[in-house]
Design a protein around this nucleic acid. Sequence first.
DNA 1: AAGGTTATCTAACCATGATAGATTACGGGT
DNA 2: ACCCGTAATCTATCATGGTTAGATAACCTT
Lengths: 180, 180
Amino acid sequence: MSPRPAPDLNQRRDRVVKLARTLAESEGWGAVTMRRLAGDLGVTQPVLYSAFASRQALVDAVALDGFDDLAAALEAVDSSPRARMRAYLDHAAAHPRVYEAMFSLPSGLTFAAEATPAPLRRAFSGIREAFPGADDTRAEVAWSVLHGLATLHAGGRLREGQMQARLDLAHRLLTEQAVG
Amino acid sequence: MSPRPAPDLNQRRDRVVKLARTLAESEGWGAVTMRRLAGDLGVTQPVLYSAFASRQALVDAVALDGFDDLAAALEAVDSSPRARMRAYLDHAAAHPRVYEAMFSLPSGLTFAAEATPAPLRRAFSGIREAFPGADDTRAEVAWSVLHGLATLHAGGRLREGQMQARLDLAHRLLTEQAVG
DNA sequence: AAGGTTATCTAACCATGATAGATTACGGGT
DNA sequence: ACCCGTAATCTATCATGGTTAGATAACCTT
């Protein structure tokens, strides 16, 4: 009368997420199919559904992990505006597909005030802390600049090799005292 | 020995693009399938392939149209920074799915210097002209702020009802004189 | 060793993008 | 008016992917 032991779902979820992320970074999200993942893991498709209710849930999990990684990357440098801004852009450029899952792909993650998952809040805090005196509005604008730069750069919309100059200017705009 | 008359491909493309755009705005891009489009137009799927080589080509066409519309929206207001910035954000918020096709969805459009289609250059010019003294770098940063604000807002990542405050701050940062 | 519970697998369903081959509509030439 | 050939359209189908129902197999307890 004893059931077959349940597999370690956390470990399975972890493996699936890691593989999905790796696959996405190397071959794009289009290559991340349930069949491909299952095959590479040596199981069948249905097993994946014990870990994630849908492909969307899996993509969301990768995105959520991505927010945690981004937060860690921000916290790993000192909290000066320049260091945090550069860390943000470097991280986004280093993991473009994960960043895509976080911001561009259809997402089931919630961002409304209450339901916002901790990793997201943590990542936002990492930006916010870089601008000590800033209110919500200023933090949101700072984040918008960074996100805009990261996205447009990843999409090939900006001139090559000018990121440093753009970063310098953005930094100056966000930190300088204004007159008049 | 006379062939059946060729249909007006331009008109067909136009109809398909318009329908795809409408459908995307009302039900999301997931609802924009070749079958659904064909059915709504009263033809069969293969006919669509006379107008567009693939679904991707169709999405790209919607995006390209979107750049033209955005350019027109910018040109419709005076060239002051504030007016143009507001026009950009209003337009993005009014047509979120088209904006998604322009910037977030996988795209086959080219953005490299030479091959960049005219509508894209025209839209960028519309932003650029709003900052007369600005060099390329400043124009790119300005665009990044706008794009970041538009995207994060559309994705529900920013507080509701604060767009005016963010716009005011962004405008100030981009236009004020700095000291020190 | 046996039984019952539950994880896994096999097999399939359904929707979608795309295409090959049959069919039909057109319009000029007789 | 009637063929005839061209090319556009339609019917039917393939291939792939997400997802799920039902069959099978593994495990633990007794």
